[in-house]
Amino acid sequence: MTPPPLEESLVRLENVSRFYGEVLGVNRVTLAIPPGITSLVGPNGSGKTTLMNLMTGLIRPTRGSVRVLGVAPEDPEKLFTLVGYSTQFDAFPRGLSGFQFIYSFLRLFGWPHAQCEQLAWRAIGRVRLNGAAHRKIAGYSKGMRQRIKLAQALAHDPRVLVLDEPLNGLDPLVRAETIALFRELAAEGRHVIVSSHVLHEVDLISDQVILLSNGYVVAEGKIQGVRSEIRDHPMQILIRCDRPAALAARVFELDSIVEARLHADGGGLLVKTRDAGRFYRLLNRIALEGIEIESVAPADDNVNSVYEYLIGGEEAGR
């Protein structure tokens, strides 16, 4: 099978800005999001929801252009066969049960009853709400409402899923199931674009991250890739070895070493370096010289540290 042209496999934003009157939503955002799980990360008000609303045409850019798999959001008839969006709004049409909600909105696609019924049950099954499907949504817990919104977004089998804070309000078990569902969807070649301000979650689920702050994209790419882009931000590495003090004396041979600190348990050394590559080469030499190295692992190669570095500890801590 011939793969689709590149343009038709990307969610692309070109120099997109959106202002709410005088207030900045997002500014000069240029992104090309490939299939897989992509996390939009940022504190409240950083522009995550604005970006998602722009991708789905709920708002229009003040400047720039948006294309989802080559389709403009101004063309809802094409766009929403490709895209499913679970918004942050915890509101539902009144008086509907979970099943009625999914079914009724599938009917808006113009599909016949039997097809809509089948798709509705399949989506409800994917979020494990079969038992509650005939109960009124008004009586659902927060977690159930999140799941029924997710079911509604994926009911028509879209190639792009845009999910605004989808893990909010889920208990740990359901959270794990939902993350597994995201992975399953991504493995099928779909775009799963999620937003979160819980960085721990992002680390667990993302193939790519887009870091946002005050309406600007401050970094994007694979987590490790983003990390290595920040040359002047020291990387922290934990080396487990038999003689950490001796190792500490040796590492300062490199001028790129910023700090070396004995680990609290006495069994390792925490090193901060501006050039991880040179440090790893030095470490290889040291290992040959007789210090027994058990393990080497990045101690802060996660979104949290990157995010903290990029936009400051104050915001990351929110």
Binding site: L58, P76, E77, F89, A91, F92, R94, F109
Partner: peptide, 18 residues
């Protein structure tokens, strides 16, 4: 009414002309 109840977006997210 749907704008006030924050439920209009479900319609706008369907592949349907406004």
């Amino acid at each position: 009414g749907e704008l006030i109840e924050k439920s209009l977006h479900y319609y706008l997210l369907a592949p349907m002309r406004r």
